[in-house]
Design a protein around this nucleic acid. Sequence first.
DNA 1: GCGTAACATGCCACAGTGGACTGTCAAGTG
DNA 2: CACTTGACAGTCCACTGTGGCATGTTACGC
Lengths: 171, 171
Amino acid sequence: MNATAAALLGFLHDRPMSGWDLVATAEALIGDFWTVTRSQVYRELAAMEAAGLVVAGPPGPRERRPFEITDAGRSVFSEWLLQPPGSEQIRYPLLLTIAFGHHLPPGRLPAFVAEHREIHEQRLNEYRSLRAELGDDAGPYALATLDFGMRYESAVLDWFDHLPPEIAGGS
Amino acid sequence: MNATAAALLGFLHDRPMSGWDLVATAEALIGDFWTVTRSQVYRELAAMEAAGLVVAGPPGPRERRPFEITDAGRSVFSEWLLQPPGSEQIRYPLLLTIAFGHHLPPGRLPAFVAEHREIHEQRLNEYRSLRAELGDDAGPYALATLDFGMRYESAVLDWFDHLPPEIAGGS
DNA sequence: GCGTAACATGCCACAGTGGACTGTCAAGTG
DNA sequence: CACTTGACAGTCCACTGTGGCATGTTACGC
């Protein structure tokens, strides 16, 4: 059982969903720290259907195939959730570019850096307004993951603000 | 040209290296924000050799095959480095587990959290002593990436320290 | 009625991961 | 000296993850 498939099972606890629904749900709820692609979702659904962890319900409009979790699925999910979670993986292309910065003509890096700073600033703002929207009735788990996002973005922005001029440009 | 292959070319600018050397170098220099596996390295080397970006030098002891970068390789690397770097990807299984925390028997999460906190504390300490070791003569690029690591780890530790008792346990 | 946008799935090539496996050499040990 | 151990070096495979292309369907505004 891989983590992505397990997450899908997790979402199916609430209600039967199609692959499309699951992609949207995953993007909204765990998208900030767990990427899930369409291809992957449909592949996992097919595999889980074959394994009897989900069953397809009556097809809806537009080829829609809602999947329902089975008892076997619930059991596999619970088992997975009890496993100690692994370490995080970070892949940040900007840091690669910076690491090879000495191969780059001077003045090229600051433009890249500015673009990324913008993105992170926006993300932090989105998180903040989402946080305000939710209030405190969102439950501790969603708030904790959101808090992670906010602290991460803040740290990245601080990092940007302390970069030397060779990298960040400016004065 | 994918980023991993490009990074290998970057390292080969300094000196010819075998796949094994490249894995070790990558782990040491960019391993904190870019994962590189053995399998991937040997696969990319084979592909780059076929594409004429690297050439194998005289074989050394133990099946060792040192690769040297070609002019074509240098040119491809420079072009790649000029491309604007993409967004970062983060996948953090612990956050997944927390997001599904309501499916978990109470008391299970704090143990996981404590384990991870330990890891991040250690990493921050390693970064700090590495930073002290390097001094200021390491060049701005390596220092910038290291600084990112330190700020990231600090932020994560702060996050751990502000988790509610349902998640972090304790009082 | 018609075009556009959102919905919904499938397929493929490539990138990335992790483990198993094989073999080589150097150094220390009894 | 034979022997074991561990670092070195590469290969292979199955699975997971990514992104783009293709294809068809329905709702909605004009």
